[in-house]
Design a protein around this nucleic acid. Structure first.
Lengths: 206, 206
DNA sequence: ACAAATTACGGATTACGCTCCTAAATGATT
DNA sequence: AATCATTTAGGAGCGTAATCCGTAATTTGT
């Protein structure tokens, strides 16, 4: 008994680690569709059956890898948002890390978005990604509350709803860029414009 | 030669028709994932090889079927939008047919959205769906211009961009409902609220 | 009317994600 | 130590989307 963590737990952690590294290297090196689950299993030196008890689908394997970066980007964004000088700029600072120059294959970003939106209900890695998104949505709400103290917020406006709309736009813009329908160069400007319109509206009066 | 359209063309149209009907019946009867391409081929009485020269993937087969409805819904929405009494209501009238009570399996709607967003670049049926969306975005722009004659529109606001944001929200809400993350009952109200905020903004001043 | 060229057809076959089931490893019990 | 129970491993096998390529049907040319 004693203080050992148990051989079993250690083996499990080892395998988990090997699988993570194998998946990470292969996906970022070759792109999602060029990687087969067999390759990942081989490189991690586990059987295919084993692979799928550590991640329930190929998509979850990708999320496992991508979540790592998103965790850092989220932390970074939340820190940066604190020093924004206007609501628009604070939100942009929050989201900027998420729209990083799509470092690896754009395909990976596209699949990541796809899995977040359409992936299996109870996958742990998808759940983690969704939690991160909730965190960011909450941060947007906080920014709005900070800058626009109550009298500034139009009566009847649901701030959580507004945060969600902002995120809908982010999702869609990320998708448009990652599938090649939009130039990555324009992404930041486009997003800023959308955020600005959302905050101050299209029309000046009813 | 004469006035014949050519036997080949006629056969082709026949097969196309049979495939459409088979796909339509099976998808709406059983839901996307319960239908195999083999079933569609059998019911349409063609070989699997043949099936895939009329639609390049299973997803395109679904789009072929769903586009039919979307074409009607779009026409209907554009007509209805003409008699909206406020910008918000006009836009809601435009979009209402698209958020129909998800008549068949919600899964079909989810896959439809997925294919529109992530499907293969040059699929003809996806292209058609995208064209329909462009049409609706343009209609939103028209509504805004109609109701909010120039002095009303905040200077510097890109109306096409605003239309796109509206659609991002629609996409995302449709997805949320179709994968079961949101109650279909609340969809209309949620969407209206989002549109309203988009039009009049979150904040009252800069 | 026949031959040559082109296009369409379809099922055997493949690739791949994922499951299933046996066997092995580990931990508990006495 | 020995036995039993429980958890973990892994690879053979399965289902299915999609392709490949030999064959058949149709059109065009003479």
């Amino acid at each position: 008994m004693l203080a050992t963590v148990g051989r079993r737990a250690r083996n499990k952690a080892d395998k988990q680690q090997r699988i993570f590294e194998a998946a990470s290297e292969l996906f970022t090196g070759l792109g999602y569709s060029a990687v087969t689950t067999q390759m990942i299993a081989d490189r991690a030196d586990v059987g295919t059956g084993t692979l799928f008890r550590y991640a329930s689908s190929k998509g979850e394997l990708l999320m496992m890898v991508m979540n790592e970066r998103m965790r850092l980007d989220t932390r970074e964004g939340i820190a940066a948002a604190a020093s924004g000088t206007s609501p628009t700029e604070a939100i942009m600072a929050l989201l900027a890390p998420q729209i990083h120059p799509l470092p690896d294959f754009p395909e990976n970003t596209a699949v990541y978005q796809r899995e977040i939106l359409f992936g299996a209900e109870q996958g742990p890695y998808r759940t983690e990604a969704l939690a991160r998104i909730s965190e960011l949505e909450k941060a947007i709400g906080d920014i709005l509350r900070r800058f626009a103290s109550t009298p500034w917020v139009r009566p009847g406006v649901d701030l959580n709803g507004a945060a969600r709309t902002t995120f809908s736009t982010l999702h869609m813009e990320l998708i448009r860029v990652s599938i090649g329908r939009e130039d990555p160069q324009t992404l930041t400007a486009t997003l800023r414009s959308h955020v600005d319109v959302l905050l101050y509206g299209v029309l000046t009066q009813r």
